[in-house]
Write a protein that binds this DNA or RNA. Structure first.
Lengths: 212, 212, 212, 212
DNA sequence: CATGAATGAGCTTTCATTCAT
DNA sequence: CATGAATGAAAGCTCATTCAT
């Protein structure tokens, strides 16, 4: 509560503060159109100070992506690992709920949105995301799928199709809400949306009755 | 059919040639990093000539988006309108096949990818896409859903959830293949992928047996 | 006498005009402190236009050095080659006159001064000057010396010492007049200065009388 | 004589340590491109500490020049003053030896090289060097020349020409070896080079035989 | 005395846009 | 219609200098 002395607030928080600011500005203007000075101002620093912590604008983007990729992958993996063995269906519902909650929150989906927008022109970022997020997610989903097949809850569908069926709606949700400002007609609550999806997908994954 | 001297084939094709070139360059470098000179070269014109047809770089982006939005919406609408009344399930399968074929082809998905990447910073583009593509798609899907419910093929699920469940996997497919270069494990053929998805979703949409 | 249209005076003279301007500005401020904008203004162009002809500030320096090195070496070589066979002493006097005339004229010695000042931090420039100017000069002097020895006009002194004895005073002249603004006490005319030097050196190079 | 803790050896040596560091960095990169931080590191200090001793980067350059100018002039003057009365020829040989030894040693000629490179854009430095070094050297040479004339060893040549003939080869030696990395063909030893020069010049300065 | 985080002016370079030809 | 030289407004990055600690 003491007066904050302009300079040197939290000694080691600077890099993270800058990354937060960078995410905000990149997210708002795109990487190429973002100005370092804007990031600096957003972080409460001068332009030059930013370069004490990051060697270039691109270094900030990389730092950002690494940070977010780590969090993302860890989250999904844990969730699946936790619930899968006991009850694949419940684990799947939980996964979708988390996915929609994250993808529907502009603050949380800012990093993924950025990666979507920029990965096309930064092969390193694409590769990093692929190995740190997508591959991890695929493994997690494959495990979940295997557990479900084992328990008799799921049919043995193609893992890549399963990944698209599961993750795709989340991405679509993000795009519709945070990029296009699409007004939701009925299902405003992410959890309800997730449950509605889970309802369709779990039903669709269920083993068919022999007669059919 | 007379021999054309390379240039000035169809006197009015210039704008479209430029838009094609612009799509290629925007897609490769992003709007902000794309140089008008590159677009001009790609179109076989001088830098100055481009400005005879478009008032600014942003005008090219708008033209591009309008063009692509028109095509996209028309395609989806027609497909649904055509097949829906007779056989909603077959129409749905056809829709998914078209979606995956389009989203898996880098030449075709270039425009949607671009819109995804740039809509965040161009509200007009977002609005245009929303009204010309998303709203149209929603109406078409709603009609398809209604037809399916009517015929007893589908349950009456939420339309927005249905849209996410249908379009999402297509977007995911585009991202995985064209942005992240994700290697498909088993399902390389878009049609098979579409069918696998249709299999899951149609099953999931099927009305439950009362007993269950 | 027609009105000069601001743009496009002599179509292909631009690079040379820019190099002239660059020499003036580099010479006045040094390479590092020179601003491209100053060069542009000196050349009657905008900042950006300079980059239509040279890729970078350093490219201008290189262009400058190459240009000047070529002229310099050619001049010295021709002079020596012309007079040496007939009359080494006269050729030597001519060489010194040319050297002092060049080194005493700020417009002419600007390029050598620049090379002196910057070669230390641009190894390529040093190497280029060494091979294109210094080595050529050494060969020319060696030939002159050999001709003089043959004709009995010179003793057979060390070629490198001869080079220092001949070129050094020229460099000193340049430094004293153009760098330090040293006021000449008596010998203001470069030709007289050259002749006074020639008098000392030719006398010193003369074979000693056996008795002495 | 007690063990010094590395830092703070001689309390007043700091300025000189900084000047040493500054000379090294200026010499390597040129004044404009030299960074104060590099100088500080070279001197084993923090960037800020340098400013406790020098008000600005330019102040370091001035300090450096003053220091070196003093040493240089004093050396030459003493040498000439010492030997001139007794034996002008020997004094001249000694002067040349000292000159070549100094000009051939990169550590010793660093300061003169720097002055050569920068005096053009720092009028104060040029003026200081002119009055503290060049004028002193001219007086010393004039005295040596007068002594030689008196003793019958030298002809009465122009003093400025004499200065160029004496100092020029030294400057050339410095340039060839320390700036251009010119490979010496035969005379590697500075003393031999000085003697070869002395041989030519002393011979050239000798009064002519009446008959000639 | 000493530190090093912070500042901000200034520089090189790029590129959308214009316009004389 | 077409060209491409020219413009000039940015923007990324550097670094001399300051100052709270």
């Amino acid at each position: 509560m003491t007066s904050a002395p302009k300079r040197r607030r939290r000694p080691d928080a600077r890099p993270d503060e800058i990354l937060d600011a960078a995410l905000a500005v990149f997210s708002a203007k795109g990487f190429a159109a973002a100005r370092v000075e804007d990031i600096a101002r957003e972080a409460g620093l001068s332009k030059g100070a930013v370069y004490l912590y990051f060697a270039s604008k691109e270094a900030m983007l990389n730092g950002l992506v690494e940070q977010s990729a780590g969090e993302l992958a860890k989250g999904a993996e844990q969730l699946v690992a936790l619930g899968a063995p006991q009850d694949p269906e419940t684990a799947f519902r939980g996964l979708l709920r988390m996915l929609f909650a994250a993808m529907g929150d502009p603050d949380i989906n800012a990093a993924p949105r950025l990666v979507f927008a920029e990965a096309g022109r930064f092969p390193e970022i694409a590769a990093h995301y692929r190995s740190q997020v997508l591959d991890v997610a695929r493994r997690a989903l494959r495990a979940l799928l295997a557990a479900g097949v084992e328990s008799g809850a799921f049919r043995d569908v193609d893992a890549d199709a399963f990944m698209r069926a599961t993750g795709g709606p989340g991405i679509a949700h993000m795009a519709l809400t945070s990029i296009f400002g699409f007004p939701p007609d009925q299902l405003t609550d992410p959890a309800e949306m997730a449950d509605a999806l889970a309802d369709i997908l779990l039903n669709g994954l269920k083993p068919r009755v022999p007669a059919l």
